[in-house]
């Protein structure tokens, strides 16, 4: 009796899944016959994971199939990205992340791949916000710069590790101002933010999406956004641009998205492109997500997406190169000097 009950529950559940996914017919569109996997090469709950899950939910209706998110973290996202490259290039396995990370794997010697091997579908652009623990004496970004200069290499800065958005932000500031800092690395953007909230580190330069809640909750104080215009954050207020203190600072948006190897069947590429134009560009859920988390909604795909991702990639690839952390010159794989 009890066993039957269990079996019944499972069957009911399975049946509800089958019926939920009734596919819609449309001409020339790719009709996937099983679920699609998106490998998020970072931990669950991080910035890539969150936005990818929102986008996946929006795409499911149009595809008539479930999209399953698999978190395959490790090695700055290169392990999961490699997992996608090794899977059959049939459109059923995708990966996600920041386009600039993908573009810089080869320069860093982590993975033999460049942006040209992929078709990009971008969803939002993220900016870095330099924030400090509220008990620290730094009231504006100028104070912080002075402190960095007065105590070189002693102020702990929390980031999500080498090549993370936070680290790239610090390297860029370093390039303009020549400051030195104590680089503390954590497992992801959120742990880095938490470490600063806990007072272990004084400064965190991670993405606005990762800091939004702590800023709104008064657990962090934002000093500057790495952009040339101020950032309006729902529930916090206006964050001044870094160009107020470093006028010649050249910002570039850090685009996030999902992508697939470019040799998948052409109808896969076209179907996703159509979904991107019809569904993602007008998605209210993505719009709400972006507004709440301090991100900029800016969907694009294909060649247009590549053009949008390039400026930020140029900046980080060349910053890394100048810091001696690359194995080949970005120039060699088609990333011109900014």
């Amino acid at each position: 009796m009890e066993k039957k009950f269990t079996v019944l529950l499972i069957l009911l559940f399975a049946a509800s899944l089958l019926f939920a996914g009734g596919a819609k017919e449309e001409k020339g569109m790719w009709q996937p016959t099983k679920h699609i996997t998106v490998i998020v090469p970072w931990g669950a709950g991080g910035s890539t994971d969150q936005v990818t899950r929102v986008v996946a939910g929006e795409l499911e209706d149009g595809l008539g199939q479930k999209i399953v998110i698999v978190n395959q973290g490790g090695a700055s996202g290169s392990v999961g990205t490699k997992g996608c490259l090794d899977a059959p290039h049939d459109g059923y396995t995708w990966t996600a992340g920041a386009a600039a990370d993908l573009g810089a794997y080869k320069v860093r010697g982590l993975l033999e791949t460049t942006l040209d091997d992929w078709v990009l579908y971008l969803n939002v652009a993220n900016v870095s916000v330099i924030s400090v623990h509220p008990d620290t004496p730094y009231q504006d970004f100028g104070d912080l710069l002075d402190a960095f200069k007065a105590k070189p290499g002693q102020i702990p800065v929390a980031t999500a590790g080498q090549l993370s958005a936070g680290h790239n932000a610090m390297v860029a500031i370093q390039k303009y101002t020549g400051i030195k800092f104590k680089h503390m690395t954590y497992d992801g953007g959120n742990p880095a933010v938490v470490a600063t909230v806990a007072g272990e580190c004084e400064v965190v330069p991670q993405l606005a999406v990762e800091e939004a809640d702590m800023l709104a909750g008064g657990k962090l104080r934002a000093l500057a956004v790495l952009d040339d215009k101020p950032l309006e954050l729902k529930g916090y207020g206006t964050i001044p641009p870094v160009t107020k203190w470093i006028p010649d600072f050249k910002p570039a948006p850090n685009y996030f998205g999902i992508w697939v190897p470019k040799d998948v069947p052409k109808e896969v590429i076209d179907t996703f492109g159509k979904l991107w134009d019809d569904v993602i560009k007008t998605s209210q859920k993505l719009k709400d997500y972006a507004a709440e988390r301090g991100a900029v909604m800016d969907p694009a795909w294909g060649e247009e997406a590549k053009k949008k991702a390039m400026p930020y990639l140029q900046i980080i690839a060349w910053n890394l190169h100048e810091a001696g952390k690359t194995v080949i010159s970005p120039e060699e794989i088609g990333i011109p000097k900014p």
């Binding site: 559940f13 399975a14 899944l17 996997t37």
Partner: peptide, 10 residues
């Protein structure tokens, strides 16, 4: 069946 269709494992 359970892993392919319920847990969606390849």
């Amino acid at each position: 069946g359970v892993f392919r269709y319920l847990f969606l494992v390849n």
